[in-house]
Design a protein around this nucleic acid. Sequence first.
DNA 1: AAACAAATTAAACAAACGTTTAACTTAAAC
DNA 2: GTTTAAGTTAAACGTTTGTTTAATTTGTTT
Lengths: 208, 208
Amino acid sequence: MEPNFNEKQICILQVAEKLFAEKGFDGTSIRDISKAAKINIAMVSYYFGSKDKMLEALVLFRTDDLAIQIENLLKESLSPLEKMGRLIDFYITRINQNKDIYKIMHFELSSKKRVLNFESFTQVKKRNVASLRQIITEGQDLGIFNLDVNIDLIAPTILGTFFHFQMNRPYYENIFDLHSDEVFENYVKTDLTKHIKRTINALLLYEK
Amino acid sequence: MEPNFNEKQICILQVAEKLFAEKGFDGTSIRDISKAAKINIAMVSYYFGSKDKMLEALVLFRTDDLAIQIENLLKESLSPLEKMGRLIDFYITRINQNKDIYKIMHFELSSKKRVLNFESFTQVKKRNVASLRQIITEGQDLGIFNLDVNIDLIAPTILGTFFHFQMNRPYYENIFDLHSDEVFENYVKTDLTKHIKRTINALLLYEK
DNA sequence: AAACAAATTAAACAAACGTTTAACTTAAAC
DNA sequence: GTTTAAGTTAAACGTTTGTTTAATTTGTTT
């Protein structure tokens, strides 16, 4: 199951990824993709077998470099609080770079249309939660972090806040006056990231 | 712009809503809908004009009762903290009941495929944020709540956490052993709601 | 009972869909 | 230079798509 794609295949996958994220898998035709990628319609079937298999190839292709190496964070000599801050930065940066495939996979995950194999994606998530758990229990053992925390629900809060912001982009563009890609991106990197960090910090540090 | 649908139209919209949420708008054909609703394929065009216009009708139909009357909450003689708890309960209950249309609208909002009019939806959100702001500033004036809070980003945290959990249902079913609709629903109402409340409370109360 | 509009139907429509074919071009191997 | 395989193409394939048609049924009004 080692994805070994050539340049042309990768080019097609990148074009498809962009279109799937913009218009959805069912909203994007092979003709749309071949037009955008400047290839013949037959090339998709030639390289991937079918449109469905191309989606599988795309998921496989992206999941491979989605594995966040937050294991390295654990080894560094930082306080648990500092580690959490770095982890959130890392999470947001990584997901911000890969938001197209995340959007596609979120749709497919909750869709009853196709059955995709998300086993490797699940494994990545479990590994990340394990690292997160290690950081938090470390902080709890030191008496710094609150004991009354549902660790498995912290990732949904971080990622959920981020994605909800992205999905409602037109609304937030409006109320925050973020009328260009650059300004919007900048708001995510500064204010939104700050809000998420503040939220997670408060959750871990606040004693009722 | 008053949506005045008869019983048959409402029945069709409800069936369409379920299918759109399950398989997406483009992944659902008029024949799928007419089969599930036990009507003739021509009835969709007859009642709504087209498939696209049916989606518009659905959005209009649902947005109308999406307006959360949290204004009433403001009047009650509760502490700001109690109001926030009630507001989160209210939010989650309401969105849990309407998660199908929310899922559809979230997809359409971030989709470049169709241009839908979300003006009334935007207005509802703005009204809700205004009420939220009133509660929080009340708490801030009383010296209870933290001043360093981005109020516009609180809703994304509440809703984002909820939706991320719903979108990744297969994953959380797995790690929390929620292998039935009832058990899953129950986890949302208890543990997930508790986590969200705890998070928002900490954010509002924690002083660094 | 006749007349009328509204509701419902099966059938047909053109357009778009994913996929396959068979011919052609390119590039490497011998 | 011939052979062979891989890459690329335009055209056609059979389905499925959203929509329209024209005929029929239903229910209400006169």
